[in-house]
Amino acid sequence: MLRILNKIWHTGTVTERRPRDAEIERFGKQVKRAIDRRFRGSLAIRQVDAGSCNACELEIHALNNPYYDIERFGVHFVASPRHADALLVTGPVSRHMETALRRTWMATPSPKFVIAAGNCACDGGEFGVSYASCGAVENVIPVDVKIPGCPPTPRDLLWGILAAIDVKG
């Protein structure tokens, strides 16, 4: 136990001690202000992988690591679309996920918005439209904001979420 406490003590709070993260702090504060204004301090996001290669998921995961710790800005990822204000969709929409995505969208209470994350979600990316892929997310459900990148970095994602709130706010 002492070893654990010792490690925590010596690690400190990485988010504040690293000067190179000032930009994240600035983004984050903007996001927080927008969320406070429009969502009363809490934005619930349901992430849906509609066919990605899983690289986008790795970077979305990173938003929860102690460097970004997106929850402190009021953004949290929820387990059900029924609890969500927004969907964060990755991947070209595979045809096998087409109905699941549409149903997830229908299960999300209005008002809701959709963020397409990653090149594939924005325009089909490397996979495009084929017998197996519907391509961009907007080919299946309405999209409000796109975050390009292959995959988008956590910074891009944070920035995109902020832009989405601004568009809808």
């Binding site: 990605s52 290669c53 045809r95 996979f127 197996a132 892929s133």
Partner: peptide, 27 residues
């Protein structure tokens, strides 16, 4: 569920294009 037709859309690619696609088989 995430079948994207990788084997089919690989057909007709040049080597550089195939390398890019292979890089997205599993991110």
């Amino acid at each position: 569920y995430v079948h994207k037709g990788i084997e089919k859309i690989a057909v007709g690619r040049d080597p550089v294009g195939l390398a890019r696609l292979a890089g997205r088989v599993s991110g």
